[in-house]
């Protein structure tokens, strides 16, 4: 069973690398939604002490949002702005992958040393959570396309949710659902803003959103 879970977590980490190395927007969206589906299944696998109906409800909502709703929202955004491919990111794809591997090594080194308060958690859980969070952050700062930045935010959110599984005792259902709802709203609002950005500028590259600055008198 443990080997199985560790394998599962390895796949979870690979989705982050997939996000880092993809130039096509559709591929990026696919990476993040696969990641969301894996994350939704995670609480069922690692044996959290909670009534089964709760676990299934949580997994169901999480799956519905992260696996289905978010990708659809972002796909709509991609279609409406007619941008299939990210042009010249700030940090190139091969360099991104190298950074990704470095982040992975760092997360493995740091994450396995952390002594968790809970016993019996899979060894790779914290490293994979850390890696996914950092990847998300890296994508937010390293990419220019607003859609990819939104995807980076989602990846970061996924990583933090995985942290939550490892660290928090079962959170109250209301908070869990609130967290998911907020993530949903965030993607929704970001999607609308991306749409406006595209209509206003004819592109969605955020480094060209740079007219606001401190002008001296």
């Amino acid at each position: 069973m443990t080997v199985w879970i560790e394998g599962f977590l390895v796949v979870f980490m690979i989705t982050s690398l997939w996000l880092l190395g993809s130039a096509r927007l559709l591929s990026c969206i696919a990476a993040v939604s696969v990641q969301g589906v894996l994350l939704a299944a995670l609480p069922l696998l690692i044996g959290i002490d909670a009534p089964p109906w709760r676990l299934f409800l949580q997994a169901g909502v999480s799956l519905g949002l992260k696996g289905i709703a978010f990708p659809l929202l972002l796909l709509r955004a991609v279609r409406s702005v007619d941008a299939r491919r990210e042009m010249e990111p700030l940090v190139g794809y091969s360099l991104s992958l190298i950074v990704g591997v470095a982040l992975l090594a760092g997360s493995l080194a740091a994450g396995t040393r952390l002594s968790l308060p809970a016993q019996g958690m899979p060894a790779l859980l914290v490293p994979s959570a850390m890696f996914t969070t950092l990847t998300g952050l890296f994508v937010i700062v390293g990419r220019r396309s607003a859609i990819v930045q939104a995807l980076g935010y989602l990846a970061m959110e996924n990583g933090i949710a995985a942290f939550g599984l490892a660290l928090a005792e079962q959170e109250p259902l209301l908070v869990e659902m609130g967290t998911l709802l907020d993530a949903f709203m965030a993607v929704f609002v970001m999607g609308i803003t991306i749409f406006h950005i595209n209509r206003e500028f004819d592109h969605i590259e955020t480094d060209r959103l740079s007219s606001l600055k401190d002008a001296p008198e």
Partner: peptide
């Protein structure tokens, strides 16, 4: 465009 730029920064930075 200026308010849009401000909004995007606001959402992204605060959400992160």
């Amino acid at each position: 465009h200026r308010s849009l730029e401000a909004t995007w920064k606001y959402i992204l930075l605060c959400s992160v």
